[in-house]
Design a protein around this nucleic acid. Structure first.
Lengths: 136, 136
DNA sequence: CTTGACCCCGTAGTATGGTACAGGGTGCAT
DNA sequence: ATGCACCCTGTACCATACTACGGGGTCAAG
C-alpha cells in the first residue's frame, strides 16, 4: 500500500514540502511514481522520517543524519563506529553547554551589578559593555 | 583624527567587510566621507564595534544589540529597562542550557547502551532512533 | 462534468552573520 | 608616472533548515 506525499508527511508529523526537501538533500530515496508522476511511498519511509526527526531532536544536523544513514548501509560499519559518532556529538554538545554557562554566568554577574534604578546612561551593564576590559 | 574603514576594523579586531555589514544593518551610523567618498570614522566608533563584539559574546543577536543601542539613546530608558533585557536573555539562555542538557543526557544513555562491538545493524543506538517510542 | 483537494516542478524567499567577488577609483611613495 | 595598497559599490555566495509561491496537472466525489 503506497502512500502519497501528503499522507506520509502527515504520518511523520512534518510538512510535505519538508519531505521533498529531504529528498533533494538525499535523506530519503526518490520513491517510485505513478503514471501521472505522483510519488508513491512505501510505508517504512514514515519510520525513516521519524528517525530524522528524532536525530534532529538529539542535536544532529541533516548532514550528520545523512552520514548516519550511509554508515548504516555500509556493511563494514560496526556498532563501534556509530558509538563513536554519538560520543563525538556528546562532546560537542558538552562544549556548547559549557559555553552557554559561561555566557549565563557573565550576564548574571552584569545583571546583579545593576541596581535597576536610575537612567540608562549610568547603567553598569552598558558600562561593562563599553569598557575595554572584559573581566567576565 | 578620522580613521579609515581598514584602520577601524583592525582596531576593533574585525574584518572591514563586517564594518560595512554592520553599517547596512544600522548597528553603526554612516560616517562622514572624504571628497573622494572614503569613510571617515571618529575614533569612538572603535568602542562601539567592541561593544557589539562583547554583546555578541554574551549571546545577543545583532538585532538585539541594535535594540540595546536604541534603548540607550532614548532618554526615557532607565537602568531597569536594560536590566530587564539582560534578565530576559539570561532566562532564554538558561532554557537553551536545559534543552542541551536533555539532549546530552539522552545521547549519553544511548551511547551507554551500546557495547561497541558487533555490526551496525544491531546497534542499539540506531535501533532506538528507529523505534516508535522515545523513552529518552 | 465540474469542483475542490491534492499533486507536480522550479524558483525564490526567510533568518542569521557574515564573506567574496567584480570592476572600478584613490592616495602615496619611489 | 607608475605601482601597490587601499577604498568604493553592488551583488552574489556560504551554511542551515525550511517555507512559500506561481503555474500548472490529477483524482475522486457529487
Amino acid at each position: 500500500m503506497a502512500l502519497t506525499i501528503g499522507e506520509i508527511a502527515k504520518r511523520a508529523g512534518i510538512g510535505l514540502e519538508t519531505v521533498r526537501f529531504y529528498e533533494r538533500k538525499g535523506l530519503i530515496e526518490e520513491p517510485p511514481r505513478t503514471d501521472s508522476g505522483y510519488r508513491q511511498y512505501p510505508e517504512d519511509v514514515v519510520a525513516r522520517l521519524r528517525f530524522i526527526s528524532r536525530a534532529k531532536d538529539l542535536g544532529f544536523s541533516l548532514k550528520e543524519i545523512a552520514e548516519l544513514f550511509s554508515l548504516r548501509v555500509d556493511p563494514d560499519t560496526t556498532c563501534a563506529d556509530i558509538k563513536r559518532r554519538a560520543e563525538a556529538k556528546i562532546t560537542t554538545i558538552e562544549e556548547k553547554i559549557r559555553d552557554m554557562q559561561g555566557i549565563q554566568g557573565a550576564l548574571s554577574k552584569l545583571a546583579a551589578s545593576c541596581s535597576g534604578s536610575g537612567p540608562a546612561g549610568d547603567c553598569p551593564i552598558l558600562e561593562a559593555l563599553d569598557s575595554q576590559e572584559k573581566d567576565w
